[in-house]
């Protein structure tokens, strides 16, 4: 059991201020996801927690102890890298057992623990193989096995699925979710730029932009009550529509945001009218791309659509689902 507490964390590389005054409270046993566009500082923040990078200022606490000056190996953390970082010249067994070896455990105990982890991750038959003789998913499991075997209190994942193909990614997503269930006391911090991963796995999501925390909350909180244009646009797929001008003025906002599924069609002309440019039919849903004076809008319709390309459409946002944002892009 370990909680993680970040207080006013800053991190600079020379004159580049990468992490800007981040404060976070991660509860014990929580699965928390850092999400944000590439280069926003997610990895840097994760590495600061791990101790691989030193923070420039602020306090980092793990399990209620300040760890600013504690080296990675003494922080009780385990980390799964995007590249897996398996030792290419060591067998799967040695890879998983390396950390135990460093703790000076006796051979027999290492063997017992590694085999137990191997069983848990269905790696038993591969223990003698070198990493290069494994498939992508198996390598991923070895990387996770290395984290599990040490019994670390905190797991850190840095985009662990981004090297896998789409199908495998879905499968591994489920496996990590299962892992979370099996290790309910382990705090997990997971970094991704993929909001779908964030939505599906997280207990809570931390949205980062340019080194700042934009919003923290459960997936549904972020979806339903994004506190800024950035968060609103980042969470949800397809993206939320942002409308400025007269429809926004009417609601006394600089910008209003409407998710694609929150439009109704009107027979009569509305504030938001346009022509249907293009349709994507997915079977379960259809996405209509409507070009209007305020820009291209995406509209989701369940099932098939009866509208034809080139047709004039009149759109009306469902009132209770309209998000209003002020001139500073924050929620009103």
């Amino acid at each position: 059991m370990a909680n993680i507490k970040l207080t006013n964390i800053n991190k600079s590389y020379g004159s580049h201020h990468i992490i800007k005054d981040v404060s976070l409270d991660i509860k014990s046993g929580e699965f928390i996801v850092f999400v944000g566009p590439s280069g926003c500082g997610k990895s840097t923040l994760l590495r600061s927690i791990s101790g691989l990078d030193q923070v420039s200022s602020g306090t980092m606490e793990i399990d209620n102890a300040v760890v600013n000056d504690v080296p990675p190996s003494k922080r009780g953390i385990a980390m799964v890298f995007q590249s897996y970082a398996l030792y290419p010249h060591m067998s799967v067994f040695e890879n998983i057992g390396f950390a135990l070896e460093n703790q000076g455990l006796p051979r027999a105990e290492i063997k017992k623990k590694v085999e137990a982890v191997g069983e848990m991750l269905q790696l038993t038959t591969y223990l003698t193989r070198l990493p290069k003789a494994l498939s992508g998913g198996q390598r991923q499991r070895v990387a996770i096995g290395r984290a599990i075997v040490r019994g670390a209190k905190v797991f850190l994942f840095d985009e662990p699925l981004s090297n896998l193909d789409a199908a495998l990614r879905v499968q591994m997503r489920m496996e990590i979710a299962k892992l979370k269930r099996d290790l309910p006391n382990t705090t997990m911090v997971y970094v991704t730029h993929d909001q779908v991963e964030a939505m599906t796995m997280a207990d809570r999501i931390v949205v980062l932009q340019a080194g700042r925390v934009m919003q923290v909350g459960t997936p549904m909180e972020l979806y339903e009550n994004p506190n800024s244009v950035f968060v609103a646009g980042f969470i949800g797929s397809p993206k939320m529509n942002f409308i400025t001008g007269k429809p926004a003025d009417k609601l006394k906002a600089k910008t209003i945001g409407v998710r694609p599924e929150h439009f109704e069609f009107s027979k009569t002309a509305t504030d938001i009218s346009g022509t249907l440019d293009y349709t994507e039919v997915l079977g379960s849903d259809s996405f209509l791309y409507v070009s209007t004076p305020t820009g291209m809008l995406t509209v989701r319709e369940p099932g098939r659509t009866q509208y034809k390309t080139g047709q004039k459409l009149h759109l009306k946002p469902i009132a209770e689902h309209v998000h209003r944002f002020g001139p500073d892009d924050n929620r009103l």
Binding site: L52, M79, A99
Partner: peptide, 18 residues
């Protein structure tokens, strides 16, 4: 050599000699 590899070993508790 890949940076991840060295850092992974650091987290695994190996000192630089190891």
């Amino acid at each position: 050599l890949p940076k991840d590899l060295i850092e992974s070993a650091q987290i695994d508790g190996a000192n630089d000699f190891k």
